[in-house]
Write a protein that binds this DNA or RNA. Structure first.
Lengths: 267, 267
DNA sequence: CCTCAATGGTCTGATTCCAGACTTTTGGAC
DNA sequence: GTCCAAAAGTCTGGAATCAGACCATTGAGG
């Protein structure tokens, strides 16, 4: 065993990349186009795998009671060896996120429910990831989600796609409080995935999970849900309507709102 | 030595990730939120490093005659060991991209100028990366660059930032034909980097370099340049004007144009 | 009860990748 | 000419990772 994870520490913010200087005002000479000489790999395979699985769990991609795909398949999908995957799974098991059972019909079952947020969680989460990283993540999310909405609104949608989007919208609206975040995520990700671009979908998923810990650290309040519902509806409508600019504006407003909410809880 | 690279084969399309199915119409159940269980690492460190350096060279981040940062520093920035970096450098040296000199004032000097495109290059480049990947890349680029422009237009810009943007615009306009692509890249990347979000900058750089090989494979024609110049100006104006929607629309139009140009050469 | 298939658990040898110490080359400064 | 600093070049032991074969456990179905 190489690492121990406790739920308290477990973060989704990713292996702390050595932090390319985020000089908002730097002399960005093309020589200074720093973005290219950034780290080739985020960390070691083990840590990255733990992060990924943790994300899948926290985002509710694999909900409580369900199991992860079989090790062999998962290892292939993640592009790592089974050994490494197993180490990651063991770490998550020891941290209490997974219950691993052997034998046929066995597997790694998710044993985790998002804890209800307590005062101070948000502060801690922010401290863990750093203020700059927070701004970075919020900006990034704003850009990719707006872009995704625009792209999708520009696309000629198939009936199937329209249904999926509508279903996801309904999913958020009908969600029980405990399921709300999960359904919210499903809605947002659907926009990116429906665009048909795996790269874009990955970017949106990445953006979202960079703020998951933070969002999970603030309570889900009735008025916010209602407000969000209106905005979600506007987003879906604009997309179904084929109006890129409205779609984008709607997403921007929605994310602005979320960001403001976060900052509000921080202030 | 583990690998040999010839300029003809050297591609920027990245290690062929096992290709998450890009089902534009799939039942994207949240269980099907495939984006999370995508490969943890793109390939081995050596190959990824070669790609990165090649990108930096082809994108003109390190132009002809300049040298890469010293090995030790570069290895740190790329998050890999010096040994691995040296292997990558050697591969690029053997492929004729770099000239490595020792001693003080030595280093790895870039010896590469983008060759003028020949008929068939584009076809080959597309074949190498795959049609689906091309669509994916174009969509991705559209989304992130539009998003970046929107974000930047929403931001309160410092005089310094305004200058940088203007300078980059001028850079493209004044560029000699041989420098055109390089300056174009600099302009586009500036938008993302000025947003102050390293994540966003990285995403845009990534998007751009996924289409570099393709763009390099089509000739730089006068009318296209002029057309692009108008669009670049519109983008910069909208951003400086603080008009997110106009900025986005301008970027979308511009990229639409580029994509159409590409498709035109392919048809 | 027995068998089977699907799944996790274990082992081994090879490969990749790393950190760090040490060596050699080179050109400028004195 | 000597010395120095900055750079590439080399070597070594160890850790991480992999591929693949094989073992153990379990529940379903006959």
């Amino acid at each position: 065993m190489r690492m121990e994870i406790t739920p308290a520490e477990a973060s989704v913010s990713g292996p702390r990349t050595p932090a390319a200087p985020a000089s908002r005002d730097a002399a960005v000479g093309i020589t200074g186009a720093v973005s290219l000489l950034r780290p080739v790999r985020a960390g070691n395979a083990f840590e990255e795998t733990v992060e990924r699985l943790l994300q899948a769990i926290k985002l509710g991609v694999v909900p409580h009671g369900e199991k992860l795909p079989p090790e062999r398949e998962l290892a292939t999908r993640l592009g790592i060896s089974r050994v490494t995957l197993r180490e990651a799974i063991r770490a998550l098991q020891e941290a209490g996120y997974l219950d691993v059972r052997r034998g046929r019909y066995g597997g790694a079952f998710v044993v985790y429910r998002p804890p209800s947020p307590r005062k101070g969680d948000l502060r801690r989460a922010v401290t863990r990831m750093g203020e700059d990283d927070l701004e970075d993540a919020l900006t990034f999310r704003m850009a990719v989600e707006c872009g995704a909405a625009r792209v999708l609104a520009t696309t000629e949608l198939t009936p199937r796609q329209r249904e999926t989007l509508a279903a996801r919208l309904a999913g958020v609206n009908d969600a029980a409080p405990a399921d709300y975040r999960r359904m919210d995520i499903a809605f947002h990700l659907a926009i990116a995935e429906l665009s048909g671009s795996p790269l874009l979908a990955a970017a949106c998923a990445d953006a979202r999970l960079r703020v998951t810990d933070l969002l999970n650290a603030i309570p889900v309040l009735r008025p916010n849900i209602e407000h969000a519902a209106v905005q979600h509806a506007a987003i879906a409508a604009a997309i179904l309507d084929g109006d890129p600019e409205a779609a984008e504006r709607a997403v921007a407003e929605h994310l602005e709102g979320t960001a403001a909410l976060l900052r509000g809880f921080l202030a």
